[in-house]
Design a protein around this nucleic acid. Structure first.
Lengths: 329, 329
DNA sequence: CTGAAAGCGCTAACAC
DNA sequence: GTGTTAGCGCTTTCAG
């Protein structure tokens, strides 16, 4: 059926080992032999069987990527980054979407563990305990999540919130809302922490509003609470929540930004499509994906390193716009 | 390191074959022995190595999914469908995003072929020739693409266009635009064909506007052409294009739907978030994904079947809304 | 520099 | 019912 290394060997008049060596670029083979073998392999359309190779080398050349919800526009960007970097390193990527079910994640890690060299875990809500367990199954890198001494790529949430708050404070807002995301989410905890610090530093009154799902509907649900809180500006857990917020505000006839300024986080593509363009804290999503692969590859090369971490910067992006100076009272 | 079938065999006091049989649920093993083996395997935390199994059975238990652009909100839904169905059948999914580069697709198919039992190809712009080549590498199912006798899941584009056109005609529109997608896209050809048929059937004048990339920016770019075409309604190649269209119309101060009615296609989640909610031809994206896996599994079971196809229905979704009756002249 | 042989973890004939 | 043997496609000693 498929052409194997032995077919190539026979056709080239050499042994299988020589073919193997020639293909893996070993120096222990005569350049002329290599040349010849390579040409024959190419003519026969030989493609090495990675599974068979993996069986003996212990390396599969595969990566696993686990995420909570591909429908959240944040993640496709991360995936693209992971893909791109993985392909450069000649790795393939297994993708698993848990449908926001943190209890399914460990099972997926286990199932994937044998087929991959490492796993990138975007699991904001996984328990520390499960993280630890996951890390024992395979080489794991977490994204936007710290804990259990697992190597991680995170974004600088605290600085992002500082920027958002500084922007609003400069616009004279003095009473500002924060629409919190899922209680168990690491990102939410960091963002809440960051905005509290920033509020204090700026001398601004902070009103925290409910915990909502990190989706459009979450924002819709929070809008009335935000209005009741009588704030002049609000920062949402993420862009999707911000959009839901704005949608509901619009249907109540409350003008953004004239009556309430809104700031999101993530800078999902959608944020730039809306009118008015959403002011948001931009997160380099694709870069997060790339960085995660990068870290994983390094870990695979030098397993000695312990729990390295990398934090990528965030950048406030003022669009055209959902924030204005507070109206004089 | 990892616990193998032989470790289990030794610990259970049986041979490796018996363990293999017990685990694969073969009837040729004493129920008591099976019970015992299963318990021992569980205690040892044994997880079978699928790659090794695949080497001998010829089945990997993996699927490949290739798509042009995960950033298009259409695809994450398809992926979720594929994932869900694959998981039910205990399959894992390789994902590859080609970044809208049709020439990269064949290479990805080749690279993946050895590691999967079948490949789901969402490649609206791949050449028929390449499709044929892809189909020789692996068991391939195409999504939203016909040609080269490859089994396919498609949506009923023609009927979708008929519904859209019937809706607009019922609203008394008599001169209607179509913003075409990529020239090489199968979906675009079908949609163009459908709308032409429908326009003729309804006695409506159809104006086709340029070929644009299937993205938000494509719609932005087409908006001015649409205005110049003096139509009272327009159907866009997809929702993303429709949103771009509306965005540009808004900034030119042209009211939707009062001055121009807009209809999209796909029903991406975004379409329901916008205000006004976009009227669109809804496509069961997740179902497409599930159906593709379903078809693939069937093909793997009975390789005799030749080029089966399945078409899923589409449904016009009138939201609250981007379409109104034409103003009396 | 190259070939022969062993074996990665697993399953499928074939014996018993 | 169960164990033994062979071998999937590949890499890697170990000899030559």
């Amino acid at each position: 059926m498929a052409v194997t290394i032995r077919d190539v060997a026979k056709a080239a008049g050499v042994s299988a080992s020589t073919v193997s060596r020639a293909l893996s670029g070993s120096e222990l083979v005569d350049p002329r032999t290599r040349e010849h073998v390579l040409r024959v392999a190419d003519e026969l359309g030989y493609v090495p069987n990675r599974a068979a190779r993996g069986l003996i080398t212990g390396r599969t050349g595969n990566l696993g990527l686990i995420l909570p919800d591909l429908a959240n526009p944040f993640f496709p960007e991360v995936v693209k980054g992971v893909q791109a970097r993985a392909r450069e390193a000649d790795y393939s990527v297994f993708l698993a979407d848990t449908d926001e079910d943190p209890t399914a994640e460990l099972g997926l890690v286990r199932a994937l563990a044998k087929q991959v060299d490492g796993i990138i875990l975007c699991s904001p809500r996984m328990s520390t305990e499960d993280m630890r367990a996951a890390a024992t199954c395979s080489c794991v890198v977490a994204v936007n999540r710290r804990g259990a001494q697992v190597p991680a790529i995170t974004i600088d949430n605290v600085d992002g919130m500082r920027q958002a708050m500084a922007h609003l404070a400069a616009l004279e807002h003095r009473r500002i809302g924060y629409v919190a995301g899922p209680r168990s989410s690491w990102s939410n905890r960091e963002r809440a922490r960051g905005i509290r610090l920033a509020a204090e530093a700026e001398g601004v009154e902070l009103v925290e509003v409910g915990h909502v799902p990190p989706r459009f509907e979450g924002g819709v649900a929070a809008a009335d609470l935000v209005v009741a809180a009588k704030v002049t500006a609000v920062v949402a857990y993420n862009d999707l929540v911000a959009m839901g917020l704005m949608s509901r505000l619009a249907s109540r006839g409350i003008a953004v930004p004239q009556e309430i300024s809104v700031v999101g986080i993530d800078d999902i593509p959608l944020a730039g499509m809306f009118t008015p363009g959403l002011t948001t804290v931009s997160v380099p999503k694709e870069q997060c994906g790339r960085a995660a692969v990068e870290l994983l590859l390094k870990l695979l090369d030098e397993p000695g390193v312990r729990a390295p971490r990398r934090e990528v910067p965030t950048q406030l992006l003022v669009r055209d716009t959902t924030t204005v100076a507070r109206r004089s009272p």
